[in-house]
């Protein structure tokens, strides 16, 4: 792998805090844009959708970390927590825009959650992320031990629900959400031993030493 080593070397010099910073900037910037007319004449929906989309993109990015190591030996593992925490923050911001700016009524919120399957699905996805965000610290990793890895497999469900939520909320069958769903299904499929095994064999036995921790 001629390319993986230089990439890994460069990446090692990038501090993790810079990923948090880069990830957080769009949140504030988009809000500012929305408040000052930069998101068009319907900024509430625009902000809701932009936060939601960034959340989904970050979740997809998080799913890429392990396959990148396994299959191409590019190691971005040290950024995975930052990506996950940022993804959760964007989901929370997406939800807050919906609650505080969009609906503004407990009755409307409750009836939407109960009556609208795509919102129910989105909420379940959000709830799945809750314990993951709460345990995204070194103390929890140590405390929970092997249980931590099991718990964090909930990400798979959350990401899948997020993509289904996106597919369901648009009118008709549109390309964009279906592409996200397709990508996520592929990334999850790479984790199935029956699919992963043959792929790794193709890559050659040398890859085995590069097996990462975590799933």
């Amino acid at each position: 792998m001629g390319l993986a080593d230089p990439i890994n070397k460069t990446v090692r010099r990038v501090p993790v805090w810079s990923v948090y910073l880069m990830g957080a900037v769009p949140m504030g910037w988009l809000f500012y844009q929305g408040a000052t007319g930069g998101l068009g004449p319907e900024p509430i929906k625009a902000l809701e959708h932009r936060y939601g989309l960034i959340a989904l993109q970050l979740l997809v990015a998080g799913l890429c970390i392990t396959p990148l190591i396994r299959f191409v030996r590019i190691n971005l593992m040290r950024f995975r927590r930052a990506i996950g925490v940022l993804a959760f923050s964007y989901v929370a911001a997406h939800l807050l825009v919906w609650l505080v700016l969009d609906l503004r009524s407990i009755a409307l919120i409750w009836s939407d959650i109960v009556k609208r399957p795509y919102i129910t699905i989105g909420m379940v996805g959000f709830l799945c992320l809750q314990p993951l965000a709460m345990t995204s610290n070194n103390w929890s990793v140590r405390r929970l031990g092997p249980l931590w890895r099991k718990l964090h497999k909930l990400t798979y469900l959350a990401v899948l629900l997020g993509a289904v939520h996106f597919v369901m909320l648009v009118k008709g069958w549109q390309w964009e959400p279906l592409l996200y769903l397709g990508a996520i299904v592929c990334l999850l499929a790479l984790r199935i031993p029956a699919i992963q095994g043959p792929l790794l064999q193709v890559r050659g036995g040398a890859m085995k030493s590069a097996h990462p921790r975590g799933g």
């Binding site: 809000f31 408040a35 004449p41 319907e42 900024p43 509430i44 902000l47 969009d102 409307l108 609208r116």
Partner: peptide, 22 residues
């Protein structure tokens, strides 16, 4: 009569900005 996926009871006027209510 609600749309199966969202309520039709309220609407938002386009152009009201980030803090406009339904």
């Amino acid at each position: 009569v609600d749309h199966p996926r969202w309520s039709q009871a309220t609407e938002r006027m386009v152009g009201g900005g980030l803090f406009a209510s339904r």
